[in-house]
Write a protein that binds this DNA or RNA. Structure first.
Lengths: 204, 204, 204, 204
DNA sequence: CATGAATGAGTGTTCATTCAT
DNA sequence: AATGAATGAACACTCATTCAT
């Protein structure tokens, strides 16, 4: 009766699972070796499949890179949104810092973030993805900073909110570099820096 | 008698000049194409010498990358020191932003900075260089922030200065990402964000 | 009792139909892309079946090529026979020229003819097929040229007929190359050349 | 004194010799396996060099194919010109037939001719080369057929000469196919066919 | 009978590195 | 000291063929 739809669904599920497997493997490889040094053969081996099979699911290596970036951006979006409604902003930022240090293939990762930025300066498609993501984040942050306090916002005037959003992006992205260069930074210091900055950020 | 030392010295001078020529060429190529995409043939051509000759002065491509990173860090050090004595911090930061956007082969460059960070996450030697550089900068910034106003400092207590130094590093490195992703950001907005942050940074 | 034969016959019929479907698809693909550039996936798609299924009917791609060549030769045979009884030889040759230029998947095609000849120089099986086809054509042409005029022939002595048959084969096959290299040749010129040659051919 | 020019000349000589070595190897491979089936690795091995080295002398495989075709066309041009001044046209044509059968890498070869034609239907650059060659030959043949007998020509009117040139191209190219399909054709028969056709061709 | 996911050897091409000169 | 021709392993990618379902 519904046998056919069920079958179709299962096939599609499998394809999706395969794509996921490839992306996870690719992310692991990219973090470990970089976009260029991670060869398709290594990705295939990591994904436990033949190199040829990857091309059934992705047109080429660049498509994989783009998909990875999309995934990372999606994670970043989630992080940002969590930031909005966090009762304790500083705690949320500290948690993000912790994530960045780790190499969990499902999470945003500092090294990958650097690689993405570097690669974008030569890969226009990737640059476009990052650019549109950036605009999106800017808007979201501004919305949050302008929203009335009663709605969980910070009630800042629009002009100031735009400026503060830029500041916040700078600070958070700079934190990414910290996660790479001082992964063992004294938590108390880092917390203090973040807390202080967040206080400044949301001040009227 | 002293003919030999004299000769050696002249040879050494020449060797140094050759190394310099290679590094300049390499930096130009790396900024324009990235570490991976810039081939030895291109570097050799840019340095106006044969590919083979490069290997008389550097063991391999990686050694060149290391040397370039050292050079960039030296540049960054100079920038930082200039920042200290700048009458107008915000103006200095804005100027730095401008430099990053450009691909001037003699200057620190945002894309190369990202590439360095990405590469460091796989190359321990490079990571160590960046780490020690980081510590150095942290110290220098702290010194500046703790120095009495009469000495051009900001007169902050040591504990607070350390925290603010971290903040400043975050902000400035985040600015690097901005230079890549929003090279055409409205200058007024950027200036406002920087000015505001700097005021916060040096507040008691 | 006769259920089985009946079944077998029906299966065989179906198998034949499938083979036909594959060959038609393959011919279309080969004409459009050549033997090498036409992949099994494309042939399968054109035949509206899965790649795997093709291997139930043909051992490998080469077997398909062989079968296609056989088909093309059969077409050529038919063309030749039609030529015999044509009231106007030149018109028939001109018509053939037109067919060769086109990429009609059901007709002999100039590019495919070249590819066949090229491939035959490496594939003995194919060479043998072409050779025996050639002998057959030679015989048929000779018969036609020696047959009395009353029987639609040209009434030439056997020795001369053999020579003229060779000439005709040369000319017609050369026409194939013309179809490829000068598909837009002025029809009047071509017609004149063909007419003149045909007159020479059948002269006593 | 002239040491440098001499050196330069010798280097250039070497490069030329290498190109020649590659082309000879490639031609051998192409004749034996076809343009597609002959891989760069095989060509390199045949030329007794590494695959990478080939790319110092040719941009890509297609450039090699084009160069081979140019070489073949140059040979064909020579053949055609020899045909003009031959006291015995038929003998010259028979000699050409003999060359085509052989696989001498320096001579025009029937199998390669077929491959060229087949490939041209997919390779526009190659098609253009063949097309311009064809126009050149047409002109040369027409010149010869219209030239006064006193100048070694055949003294035909221009219109007729154009038609006969087409006929000759057809016949000679058809002969190519004969060389492939009936390499062991009875020489007497072939000579008779050629002689007869040539007589027709040059008749007023 | 039929599918299409999967394989893996193969493709043309690149490039860091070496070495005879 | 300097060259640049030469290497060969690696790269991203393709495709005829197989096989579990």
């Amino acid at each position: 009766m519904n046998a056919r739809p069920h079958n179709i669904s299962r096939l599609s599920e499998r394809a999706q699972a395969q794509k996921e497997r490839i992306l996870s493997a690719a992310q692991t490889c990219f973090i470990e070796h970089g976009f260029h040094a991670a060869g398709m053969a290594l990705i295939a081996e990591t994904a436990e499949m033949s190199p040829g099979l990857i091309y059934r699911y992705f047109d080429n290596k660049n498509a994989i890179i783009l998909a990875i970036v999309d995934r990372q951006l999606e994670n970043a979006r989630t992080d940002i949104r969590a930031l909005h409604h966090a009762p304790d902003l500083a705690a949320a930022a500290l948690n993000a810092f912790d994530c960045w240090r780790r190499a969990d293939p499902r999470l945003m990762n500092a090294a990958l973030f650097m690689e993405m930025n570097a690669e974008a300066s030569r890969n226009p498609e990737l640059a476009a993805a990052l650019s549109s993501f950036d605009a999106e984040i800017q808007k979201e942050l501004t919305n949050w900073l302008t929203a009335p306090v009663s709605a969980g916002g910070k009630g800042l005037p629009a002009q100031l909110a735009a400026i503060r959003a830029i500041s916040l992006k700078c600070f958070m992205e700079g934190l990414t570099a910290r996660a790479l260069r001082e992964p063992d930074i004294k938590p108390a210091l880092l917390r203090a820096a973040i807390t202080e900055f967040m206080a400044h950020l949301t001040a009227a």
